[in-house]
Design a protein around this nucleic acid. Structure first.
Length: 768
DNA sequence: GGGTGGCATCTTTTT
DNA sequence: GATGCCACCC
């Protein structure tokens, strides 16, 4: 079952001691000297520049715990802002271990969007939003825009609603209002966007709805119009922390500045080299100019990497050195050299996927890596398909993160629309979504008439429905509309008396949605039905955990901000995801696929230096996810627009000047050189087919418990065992020496004599 | 008003 | 290669 990340508003001060001296000492232990410094500078602005794998989260969490343990701050006086719920939860769990669950629960921790949605819930009334406002995701926003485009006679085929939304969102991210944007217009599309921007905002307001950008902009508006409110929050939060500071946009920057103005205890953590969200308004300038904004800031650099092998870090440096505009930073590690990075060339995407599958199988069997130790990364979500197919064929369990997430599925959005309508009937997007789903005789024409009426009388669509008799519809249509109205109103009236989970269940029942899915009877419909049930369970769970504070609108607002990425990968599966989604994660084995011109870097990003540098940082992010083994893959041809098209190796590979990469044949890779033209069979060392015939067993291994397993069912290699070698034939193990990757066996082969073999490479098979 | 079939259209990345 | 939109028929 899905568990939601929900937190009570941590206002009240719990009964926890003022300080925890023994915890404070423990918190400092296990940190390196630089990290310790970052934890102990508790006053004034702090900039922590943290390279990949440098223990950034650890440092941040220890810092927060330290503030509590030393009594410098009460838990509810600390605000920590992240970009994903997952990051927040991870930090929360660590803090719990350091200072206890009770104290941790009262820290204000969460994503920017979630925290400010909560603020708006409490204070939004001052700027005209009731607490039951709806949150519109990009889908809802585009739906709204589409409607406006129709009204303004803008052809959606000529100017896509998506582009328009993107432009408006970009303007909002930079805090540019409709009037100002209209002045800046420089192209026909922008002109259309400018025309729609104002009406779009108006439509949102009329629906008592906010889009993602509004969740940041409206709090700014609130704080500017009501300095007393700002002052209250400034005083409440004595310590402000921001993770992934390089990803903040203009609005987030302004919010941070405002909130930190009184105490100036602002601690930001980030890595300019990992800035990959400029497309959604992130301004790398925020981190680059932090020292200018706060001249008295303490700057701390976490440069020691604990994650990756030397070779992987060398590659990362070789990549990033092609970018200008970097903060100075030198990564180093005490980790071993590690294996060379393997460059894999495939004939097609299918071939690429197959090779990835074989490598996973090989490493799983040979080193005993669990499936959860693998990540396969790609640039676009569409690339997952071929990989999924290959893994499914190979019987390797996997999960895909991102893509179409649970919350973006049609049936879930339908359910949410019904529920949103219940708490906020003015929510036009939700109303239009479900007014005729399941079909109940309210067609497009009827809806249009209602909308016209609403507009003429300055009403919301819902208000028009409330007085449907005046609208002048046919008797049949009017009756259908009235029935729908009654359905919603009847349930809305019970909101205060019936528990929300029960209410939701009966509403969906009576709407006919569940029946509709069951009636279809296809496996897909069944799956959708189950998803709906899961959603209902989640509501029940929410009621159980949030107790008194459980309101349907609260639930809906939290859910609107959740994504699949927030879920924990508990089972032992290979992870497939976009490079973007991989940020902040680490895996023993990483594959980066699709390193081809036009795909990575994406064609659209090759024109502008800034875009190209962002793509390069994305490559850097991907590479630095790997702990021990890294594979870089590309295909010589790929399906695009439903057609097989030749592709060219990525410039990111051609520009590398490094000796850490080898080809599949084990030869050093040199840029600009064609890999190999020999027939495939001779080209690379075939992986031992012996492994591939066996069904795979899931092993519950993680890095820590890794055993050297060279062959399933044949036992481990021990002195005295009879073994078989691919070239030398049968032999007998005389002795073993060395550890881990260095482990060697001395084997006597009757035909060739005594050999000393590195177990890792020899692939001995026990035969007795 | 509802349902079906054919055509066109894109595919960045996400809170 | 999937989704959305339109035209056509019931």
């Amino acid at each position: 079952m899905r568990t939601f990340f929900l937190q009570r508003d941590p206002d009240t001060n719990p009964e926890i001691p003022d300080s925890l001296p023994e915890a404070a000492a423990r918190i400092l232990e296990g940190l390196n000297p630089v990290q310790r410094q970052a934890v102990q500078v508790t006053e004034g602005p702090v900039l922590i520049i943290a390279g990949p794998g440098s223990g950034k989260t650890r440092t941040l969490t220890h810092r927060i715990a330290y503030l509590i343990a030393t009594g410098r701050a009460r838990p509810h006086q600390i605000l920590a802002l992240t970009f994903t719920n997952k990051a927040a939860r991870e930090m929360m769990e660590r803090i719990e271990r350091l200072v206890g669950a009770e104290a941790a629960r009262h820290i204000w921790m969460g994503t920017f969007h979630a925290i400010f949605a909560r603020i708006l819930r409490r204070e939004g009334q001052r700027i005209g939003y009731t607490p039951d406002f709806s949150i519109y995701d990009t889908d809802d926003a585009e739906r709204l825009l589409r409607e406006l485009m129709a009204r303004y006679h803008i052809d959606p085929r000529q100017y896509s609603p998506r582009t328009i939304r993107h432009l408006i969102s970009g303007a909002k991210n930079q805090m540019i209002g409709p009037e100002e944007y209209a002045r800046l217009v420089a192209s026909p599309v922008q002109e259309k966007a400018a025309k729609l921007y104002g009406p779009y905002q108006e439509a949102l307001r009329k629906a008592n709805a906010l889009d993602f950008d509004d969740l940041l902009l409206k709090p700014i508006e609130l704080f500017e119009q009501h300095p007393d409110v700002l002052q209250r929050y400034q005083e409440r939060w004595r310590y402000l922390h921001i993770d992934e500071y390089q990803d903040t946009n203009r609005a987030q920057y302004v919010l941070a500045r405002k909130l930190a103005a009184a105490h100036r205890n602002l601690c930001v953590v980030g890595d300019d080299a990992q800035s990959i969200y400029a497309f959604r308004g992130a301004d790398i300038g925020n981190i680059l100019s932090f020292q200018r904004d706060y001249p008295d800031a303490t700057v701390i650099r976490l440069e020691q990497n604990y994650r990756s092998t030397r070779r992987i870090l060398k590659l990362a440096e070789a990549i990033i050195q092609h970018n200008r505009d970097q903060l100075e930073k030198r990564l180093w590690t005490e980790n071993p050299e590690g294996d060379p990075i393997v460059l894999i060339e495939a004939l097609s995407e299918r071939d690429e996927a197959q090779k990835v599958e074989q490598r996973i199988r090989d490493l799983h069997v040979r080193y005993g890596y669990g499936f959860r130790d693998f990540a396969v990364l790609y640039r676009t979500n569409a690339q997952s398909r071929s990989l999924e197919e290959a893994l499914r064929r190979g019987g390797i369990p996997y999960r895909v993160v991102g893509g179409l997430s649970f919350y973006q599925r049609k049936e879930i959005k339908d359910v949410l629309a019904y529920l949103r309508l219940l708490v906020n009937p003015h929510d036009a997007a939700s109303l239009q979504r479900v007014i005729n789903y399941p079909a109940r005789g309210i067609g497009q024409r009827t809806v249009e008439v209602l909308m016209d009426y609403a507009r003429q009388h300055g009403l919301s669509l819902w208000q028009a429905i409330e007085r449907v008799e005046e609208v002048g519809l046919s008797a049949r249509a009017q009756k259908a509309v009235q029935e729908f109205h009654f359905l919603i109103a009847r349930h809305a009236a019970k909101m205060d008396t019936v528990p929300v989970d029960e209410l939701a269940r009966t509403l969906l029942q009576e709407s006919g949605l569940l029946e509709e899915l069951r009636r279809e009877g296809t496996p897909e419909a069944l799956a959708r039905w189950e998803n709906v049930q899961e959603m209902l369970n989640a509501i029940a769970e929410y009621v159980a955990t949030a107790g008194e504070q459980a309101t349907l609108s609260g639930f809906l607002q939290e859910v609107a901000l959740l994504t699949d990425l927030d879920e924990m990968p508990e089972d032992n599966r290979v992870t497939l995801m976009t490079l973007h989604a991989s940020k902040g994660l680490e895996f023993p084995v990483v594959f980066i696929t699709g390193l081809e011109e036009g795909l990575f870097p994406l064609a659209q990003a090759t024109q502008d230096r800034k875009d190209l540098e962002e793509e390069r940082r994305l490559f850097y992010v991907g590479v630095t996810r790997a702990q021990r083994h890294l594979f870089l893959c590309y295909a010589r041809s790929r399906y695009r627009y439903g057609e097989q098209q030749p592709s060219v190796r990525s410039r990111f590979l051609e520009e590398l000047d490094t000796d850490v990469i080898v080809t599949e044949a084990g030869l050093p890779f040199r840029r600009g050189e064609v890999l190999d033209r020999r027939p495939r069979s001779e080209r690379y060392v075939e992986l031992d087919s012996h492994y591939y015939r066996r069904p795979l067993q899931q092993r519950s291994s993680s890095g820590a418990t890794r055993r050297v397993v060279y062959d399933e069912g044949a036992g481990e290699i021990v002195p005295g065992a009879r073994v078989e070698h691919a070239i030398f034939g049968e032999g007998k193990v005389l002795a073993l020496e060395g550890q881990g990757d260095q482990a060697r066996a001395i084997v006597f082969f009757p035909e060739v004599g005594q050999k000393k073999l590195v177990l890792k490479f020899a692939r001995l098979r026990r035969i007795d």
